[in-house]
Design a protein around this nucleic acid. Structure first.
Lengths: 204, 204
DNA sequence: CAGCGATCTCAACGCCTGTTGAATACGAGT
DNA sequence: ACTCGTATTCAACAGGCGTTGAGATCGCTG
């Protein structure tokens, strides 16, 4: 009747352990950021020894990079949002973002990146480069081609600042009326802001 | 010729040690957030033994609270911004914020709070409560009194989301064109956004 | 000048961290 | 059936953390 200490070797069958670790890592990084999320906690969530995490990913850093891989390809998303033209682009972008936030829930890589970037320079650089090359430059180029607006990259940066602000104020700080507002209310509030940043006049 | 190990007891004269510790703490918390900023590093910056920090403040938490005390009284700032009336309020608010950011530099409690709120629920609650009671409720009440606009607190939350976004995107992520833009460019870009959030129409 | 309280350092504690190396168990290929 | 690579755990490491208690030195008050 001895409670057997979990046996040492391999498990029978196809255990999706690697994916379990990745899921747990995504959730922990998104919920606590790089520093506060411990390898031990992630391993615990995945029902696994910490050493197994290192066996699969080598270091905590590498696990972070693997877990934060973005589930959507910006090279497809940006053109799709711009498909119907530049009219209503702001609202489409905001609605898309809010939908993605709701769908991803706990394991949102955007949250993981923001939470980690703050207080971890490497993650900040990682996020700045990903945001910049994959999204903002693309968005800037596309919009400037459609409208010939001036300072396209500044416009994209302005959008990013509002998007990051929504993420932090709503998902992390949980400002009450912002967290409670339903999606279309926020689309109506933020849509015109983004639209103006992208295509409106920035002079006083 | 023995290099004397720093003597143990009290130093002669009026050593502003307590303030040195507070300054170092502000800078470290603002630069790295609560978790990553260590008591040992703060003590090192202040040229002091870590135990002295505990002697003055008891715990790291208490040191954080003491260091993040806001150097400006919102009860004075909000009325001053609203003094000239509600016209141009957005631009005044943005200009004021950017000036404060520049003035505070390294030791900005706002940065410390944001960096800590992310990844430390206690700090998030602290910031939500301070922001809410001291600033947003006040701002909401004042604007709604001037204009009778609907949903005043949601409007204030929208402003907060853009302000936090500027802080994160510009000061932490350092998005290139945003970090490089001069103050009046940003006033022209963000001013109308804040103005609309506060006094404009939020319906589509 | 005696004593007291404030200021300051030292050395150590217990804990948690990422990471490592060895040991074991299984599945697949020959 | 043997072997090899992969999956998995265990036990331990070195280092960093916040915090503690004891001791040393100074300034102020009587």
């Amino acid at each position: 009747m001895a409670t057997d200490p979990t046996p040492r070797g391999r498990r029978p069958g196809d255990s999706g352990t690697r994916d379990a670790i990745l899921d747990a890592a995504r959730a922990r990084f998104a919920g606590e950021g790089f520093r506060a999320a411990t390898v031990r906690a992630i391993a615990g969530d995945a029902g696994v020894d910490p050493a197994l995490v290192m066996h699969y990913f080598g270091t905590k850093q590498a696990l972070f990079v693997a877990a934060m891989e973005f589930p959507l390809d910006p090279a497809q998303v940006v053109p799709r949002l711009l498909g119907p033209g530049v009219d209503g682009l702001g609202e489409r972008l905001v609605r898309f973002l809010l939908t993605v936030i709701d769908d991803l829930g706990d394991a949102n890589p955007m949250l993981g990146l923001v939470r980690s970037a703050v207080g971890h320079p490497d993650a900040a650089r990682m996020m700045r480069e990903f945001l910049g090359e994959a999204i903002l430059d693309r968005l800037a180029a596309a919009v400037s081609e459609h409208t010939g607006a001036d300072r396209p990259r500044l416009r994209a940066d302005l959008c990013a600042s509002q998007v990051v602000g929504v993420l932090v104020a709503r998902q992390i700080l949980a400002l009450p009326e912002l967290a409670a507002a339903d999606r279309e209310t926020l689309v109506a509030a933020y849509g015109p802001t983004i639209q103006r940043y992208l295509t409106g006049s920035l002079a006083p």
